[in-house]
Simulated scan of single mutants.
Amino acid sequence: MSASAAVLKAETKLFAREPGSLFWVLAFPSLLLLGFGLIPKYREIDEGLGGNRIIDFYVPSVVLVALVTASLLSLPGTLTGYRERGILRRMRTTPARLADLLIAQMALHAVAAILGGVLAIAVGRLVWGVALPEQPLAYGVTLLLATLAGLATGSVITALARTAKAAQAVGLAALFPAMFAAGIYVPIQVLPDVVRQIIALLPFGAAAQALNQAASGSWPAWSHLAVLVLWTVVPMVVAARWFRWE
Rank of each mutant, 00 (worst) to 15 (best):
A104H: 12
R244T: 09
A214F: 07
A174N: 06
L151G: 06
G217H: 05
A174W: 10
A96C: 08
S71H: 09
W219C: 01
S218E: 15
A27L: 12
L225S: 11
A164D: 04
A182Q: 02
A159F: 08
Y185Q: 05
L151Y: 07
P187F: 09
A16S: 14
R89N: 06
P60H: 02
L33P: 11
Y185V: 06
L143G: 08
G217I: 02
R43T: 13
I103K: 15
F204Y: 15
G48V: 08
I39Q: 07
W242Y: 15
I114L: 13
L191R: 03
A120T: 15
V229Q: 09
S71Y: 08
V59H: 06
S21E: 09
A96L: 07
M1E: 13
V62F: 05
S223R: 13
T93F: 13
F23L: 12
V234W: 10
G124N: 07
S223F: 08
L34N: 12
R162Q: 14
V234T: 11
F204W: 14
L22I: 10
L191T: 03
A152S: 14
D100C: 04
R196P: 03
Y42M: 01
K41G: 08
A173C: 10
I45T: 13
I45S: 02
F57K: 10
A112W: 00
E11H: 11
L126K: 14
A174R: 03
A107E: 00
L101N: 11
T80Q: 07
G77T: 08
E18Y: 14
I199G: 06
R97I: 11
W245K: 04
I157T: 15
I199Y: 09
T163Q: 03
P29I: 10
K13T: 09
V190I: 15
T78V: 14
V141S: 12
L132D: 00
A122T: 10
Y42L: 01
L108P: 00
V156E: 10
P76Q: 08
V234N: 12
L8A: 10
A5T: 12
Q168I: 01
F243P: 00
K9N: 10
T78A: 14
G117R: 01
K9R: 14
S216Q: 13
I87R: 00
G37H: 05
L202W: 05
P192L: 06
F243R: 00
F28S: 07
V7F: 04
G140H: 05
P95T: 11
S216P: 03
Q189W: 12
Q197A: 12
L88D: 01
A107Q: 03
A221I: 00
T232I: 04
A215D: 11
L160I: 14
A120W: 12
P203S: 12
A113H: 06
I199D: 05
A161T: 02
R241P: 01
A3Y: 07
L148Q: 04
A178W: 03
A240Q: 11
G48Q: 09
T147D: 00
L201Y: 02
A200Y: 00
V186W: 12
H224W: 14
S61F: 01
S74C: 09
T69V: 10
G50H: 03
F23H: 04
G35A: 13
Q209S: 07
I157A: 06
T163C: 04
T12F: 15
G116W: 12
A173V: 14
D193M: 09
S30I: 11
G81V: 05
I55G: 05
